[in-house]
């Protein structure tokens, strides 16, 4: 009979392997115990924030920075973001800042409401592949870098980490000061975030 789908079509037509086979989803790399000069420099970037202003990591030289790569669809990121909001509020006057880099493909239309909902008080930019590549590819979210006052990476967390773990690392870096090359008093003052919400 014409126009009938052949019964030769296999019932199970495809098998897709969807997981990330060899990916350890909680990795921590820390250079916090090293002499600051032994740490790797955090790559500088130029990304736009919600108000369209360009943010460079180098604008924050002299501050301890938490640089968080995240996305709205990432549950573990959602757990960490309120911690970072609290750190920003409590430590921003001590030479500390949080920077968020959203890896959402859908951009500000999904990111803006999310920031408003979570009352995020720190600067957030939209990420891109170039920036992700500079930071090793960012295969899993959240991926968070803790950067010392000299712009060097003191610790990297891939996957959900503990609030105390972050806080201890930040406090150690705040207490240790920098190399003296870029004291807080001479650092540029980044524009206060408004998020345009």
């Amino acid at each position: 009979m014409l126009n009938r789908v052949s019964k030769a079509i296999p019932v199970v037509a495809a098998a897709a392997l969807l997981g990330w086979a060899a990916c350890n989803t909680h990795r921590v790399h820390t250079d916090s115990g090293k002499n600051a000069s032994g740490r790797k420099m955090a790559p500088d970037f130029a990304l736009k924030d919600v108000d369209g202003r360009t943010v460079h990591l180098s604008d924050y030289r002299g501050k301890v920075v938490v640089l968080d790569f995240w996305a709205t669809w990432c549950g573990p990121c959602r757990l960490e973001i309120p911690w970072f909001t609290q750190f920003e509020q409590q430590k921003k006057n001590r030479g500390f800042a949080v920077l968020g880099v959203s890896m959402d493909d859908d951009g500000w239309p999904v990111v803006k409401p999310f920031l408003k909902d979570l009352k995020v008080n720190y600067r957030v930019m939209l990420g891109d592949d170039h920036t992700a590549d500079m930071y090793g590819g960012i295969e899993a979210l959240p991926t968070t870098f803790i950067i010392d006052r000299d712009g060097r990476i003191a610790a990297t967390h891939v996957g959900l980490a503990g609030k105390e773990e972050f806080e201890d690392a930040i406090e150690n870096l705040l207490a240790s000061g920098g190399s003296g090359a870029a004291p807080i008093t001479s650092s540029p003052s980044p524009v206060a975030p408004t998020h345009g919400l």
Binding site: M1, L2, N3, R4, V5, S6, A8, I9, A13, A14, A16, L18, G19, W20, C23, T25, H26, A71, W73, C74, G75, P76, C77, M103, D105, E139, A140, L141, P142, V158, G159, L160
Partner: peptide, 24 residues
């Protein structure tokens, strides 16, 4: 689909499926 473990999430991914059919 978009997959996660209990500690991390991975970017959404699309798998293409090709299915031969024979209309008789």
């Amino acid at each position: 689909y978009q997959a996660c473990s209990d500690r991390a999430c991975f970017p959404p991914k699309t798998v293409e499926i090709k299915l031969p059919v024979n209309i008789q």
